[in-house]
Computed example of a mutant assay.
Amino acid sequence: MPQYFSEDASVDAVNARMGEDVSPRLRQVMTSLITHLHGFIKDVQLTQEEWAFAVDFLTRTGQICSEQRQEFILLSDTLGVSMLVDAIGNRRPSGATENTVLGPFHVADAPRREMGVSISADGKGETCLFEGRVLDAAGNLIEGACLDVWSDNADGFYDVQQPDAQPRWNNRGRFTTGADGAYRFIGIKPVSYPIPYDGPVGKMLAALGRHPYRPAHMHFIVTAPGFQTVVTHTFVGDDPYITSDAVFGVKDTLVAPFERVNDGATAWRSPFDFVLVPS
């Protein structure tokens, strides 16, 4: 007997239209999506006007997207979806370094640099020594680990956002650990900055009484043969936005020490060890 559409039977009516040869995973995902989507609409009793507003919001979100800007990912980030997908895909045992979002400003193939050198090329900001070790869960030092690092500059912009104002590869570099498993480089103490808020996502945040700021952080991608890749940040703990990151990227274990240095070559020091798990 055909399953006709009705308010009560809406989920069954839509899901019954799937063909018999649909892949099991696609069937599982779409069945759940329809079930939750229809459940949401019934729960809030969505009006025609609200539905039209949502369609217009999604249309405007797509229209602002370009090769330089992905507003849909920004929407995913600000709704916590990106972090949830990342958390599910990167579950690790207690004590291992946790993942967080990659962010839109990573650039592949940053220059390989000698351990201990500075990655800052524009002369702005308070200098900071970043150092620590790369270890396995048993505390063994990992030789040959690569740390791909990058941050904003003192004005809160990444080099790719200001190609005419910042030197290429400013505040970026790759470092490889030796037998001691240690890394060491000089950057700047990062500063907080806003995500793009001149589009639909920014208007959504304003309507929800939310700010668009990310707390100050240094990006790391840590790779080593035989171990899971870690994509993460270390955060400045006294940043005013540390508990209200616009994209929900902060985890307690990723808040790093930033210590004032009174007699060193830098103004700050930030020690942090990375603990990897086997792939």
Score class of each variant (00 low, 15 high):
Asp263Pro: 07
Pro271Gln: 09
Asn262Ser: 14
Trp268Pro: 01
Asp273Val: 05
Trp268Cys: 07
Val255Phe: 04
Ala267His: 08
Thr253Trp: 04
Thr243Leu: 15
Asp245Phe: 07
Asp245Arg: 02
Leu254Ile: 06
Thr266Tyr: 04
Ala256His: 07
Trp268Val: 05
Phe235Ser: 00
Ile242Ser: 01
Phe274His: 07
Asp252Trp: 13
Val230Phe: 00
Thr229Met: 09
Thr229Tyr: 02
Thr266Phe: 10
Asn262Asp: 15
Pro271Gly: 04
Phe274Ile: 08
Ser244Thr: 13
Phe227Ser: 02
Phe258Tyr: 13
Thr234Glu: 01
His233Ala: 10
Asn262Lys: 11
Pro257Leu: 04
Ala265Met: 15
Val275Asn: 07
Ala246Ile: 10
Asp239Arg: 01
Trp268Ile: 10
Val231Tyr: 06
Thr234Leu: 05
Val247Cys: 11
Pro271Tyr: 02
Val247Asp: 09
Thr253Leu: 14
Thr232Lys: 06
Val250Gly: 03
Thr232Arg: 02
Gly237Lys: 01
Gly237Val: 00
Arg260Pro: 10
Asp239His: 06
Phe272Arg: 04
Phe227Glu: 00
Phe227Ala: 04
Asp252Thr: 15
Pro257Ala: 09
Ala246His: 06
Thr266Ala: 07
Asp252Ala: 15
Pro257Val: 02
Ser270Val: 08
Val255Arg: 07
Thr266Ile: 09
Phe227Cys: 01
Thr232Glu: 01
Phe274Lys: 04
Ala265Thr: 14
Ala256Gln: 09
Val230Asp: 02
Glu259Ile: 14
Glu259Pro: 06
Gly264Trp: 05
Asn262Met: 14
Pro240Gly: 05
Asp273Tyr: 07
Val275Ala: 03
Phe227Asn: 01
Val236Pro: 00
Thr229Val: 10
Gln228Val: 09
Arg260Glu: 13
Asp263Trp: 12
Lys251Arg: 15
Ile242His: 01
Phe248Lys: 12
Asp273Ile: 08
Ala265Lys: 13
Ile242Lys: 00
Ala265Arg: 14
Arg269Leu: 11
Thr232Asp: 02
Gly237Pro: 00
Phe235Glu: 00
Asn262Ile: 13
Asp263Gln: 13
Thr266Met: 05
Ala265His: 15
Ser270Phe: 00
Ile242Val: 08
Asp245Gln: 09
Ala267Tyr: 05
Ala265Ser: 13
Phe235Gly: 00
His233Gly: 01
Val236Lys: 00
Val231Lys: 03
Ala256Lys: 06
Gly264His: 10
Phe258Pro: 03
